[in-house]
């Protein structure tokens, strides 16, 4: 069994991306990340030795992020079904307005699908299982979410002179 530190080092960034995709960057995503790793550390000794660590951590983080969404909404949801509606809740205290707008503009289902499939690298079927949805619905939500982010990104790029510079998307950004 690997030292837990190894899991934090290997998967901490991906888990934070998932939390931020669902919650936007800011204190809520940080809380979800912290709660996820704390709860994973508690359960870690009982984890089967051959478990997929990243999928396990992403599952926990997704659950914690949804907990935060529910707390934020201040209206307890009695079932696993979450209302599919654009986030009107605001994401306070973040330092990246561009990203906040891009993410907040997506309905929760699309944020989840983009986070789990594109950021955490889960196959559509696993993302569907995690969110209590179907493979087809997750595929569609991920595609719709990506289309909106793409449109947002293009809008954001238009003021710049060289919109189509192909290398602009390579590697680390900023």
């Amino acid at each position: 069994m690997k030292p837990f530190e190894q899991l934090v080092a290997d998967h901490g960034p991906t888990v934070l991306r998932v939390c931020r995709a669902v919650l936007g960057p800011g204190p809520d995503a940080d809380d979800a990340w912290s709660e996820a790793f704390l709860s994973a550390l508690r359960a870690y000794p009982e984890l089967p030795w051959d478990a997929n660590h990243e999928a396990w951590l992403v599952t926990i983080a997704h659950r914690k992020a949804i907990d935060v969404v529910r707390r934020r909404a201040r209206t307890p949801v009695p079932t696993d079904q979450l209302p599919e509606s654009p986030s009107l809740l605001g994401i306070p205290g973040n330092d990246d307005d561009e990203l906040r707008q891009a993410v907040a503009a997506l309905p929760l289902r699309q944020r989840e699908a983009v986070a789990l499939h594109y950021l955490a690298g889960l196959p559509y079927a696993e993302a569907a299982e995690l969110t209590g949805s179907t493979t087809a619905a997750v595929r569609r939500a991920a595609a719709d979410g990506m289309a909106k982010l793409r449109a947002f990104y293009r809008r954001g790029q238009q003021p710049a002179a060289d919109v189509a510079a192909p290398d602009a998307s390579e590697g680390a950004i900023r």
């Binding site: 991306r17 690298g121 793409r150 998307s169």
Partner: peptide, 23 residues
């Protein structure tokens, strides 16, 4: 304990996701 460069991750999904992957 070598961490990947957390700022760069090739998601293969295009530049719009760089907004989300930047850490």
């Amino acid at each position: 304990m070598t961490a990947e460069n957390p700022a760069a991750q090739d998601t293969g999904a295009g530049p719009e996701l760089d907004l989300l992957t930047r850490l």
